[in-house]
Amino acid sequence: MLSPLVQTPLFGITLTLVTYELASCVYRRWPLALLNPVIVTAACIILFLSLLDIPYAQYAAGGDILLFLLGPAVVALGLPLYQRRAEIISRLLPTLCAVSAGAVASIVSATGILLLFGSDTGLILSMAPKSVTTPIAIGISEKIGGIVPLTAAIVVVTGCFGGMVGPTFCRLLGIRDPFAMGLAMGTAAHGLGTGRMLEIDRFGGAMAGLSIGLNGVITAAIIPIFVALLP
């Protein structure tokens, strides 16, 4: 009786919004990194779907509509960039250098660690674009011969982890300037790092948004060099 209802977008969207709202209440009450609302919500929904034996595709009827809104949300990042343009232009060179350094560090460390584990090439290539935003990472993975669905999963996990521990880790390292923290969050954890950064500081969030695009372009450009160097 209920199964036709589960296939409508109403199910996926409502389930996501209600769970997220509850998870946010919990997070406001106990603001622990482990209780990050995105992770708690995703974990609860996975559990719920598995227990009731509802396939992911039926949830996706609604989930895809929320995912679609990521597109205009990325466009909207142009507004905070415009509002803080004077500060950005005065720091253009440090921005480009820092994001480039982060892009190289990401590719080298991710592939290097997997090499130490003795992982096979398919896995390494899928991991290489891990810090880049989902749509760009998928394109890169496809181009260099990675496993595309695996790359998509790694990118989301990386973003969740970076968004969760990023601000605390940055403060531990003495990175407190919203400009530097924003670039670090956007370069390491793309949209999820940016979302977290926007909650902390508006300007930092705008810098994180800028570094999503920059990191994507830089990684796409330099990754073939590193792939050629792989044993």
Partner: peptide, 29 residues
């Protein structure tokens, strides 16, 4: 194991490299 160690450790490295170089370069400027 390989995926989680690589994803988490590499993310921390990127945060450190990007954050430190941005802060250092912005101050120097």
């Amino acid at each position: 194991l390989a995926l989680s160690v690589a994803a988490s450790l590499s993310t921390l490295i990127v945060l450190a490299v990007t954050g430190w170089s941005a802060q250092y370069l912005a101050r120097k400027g």
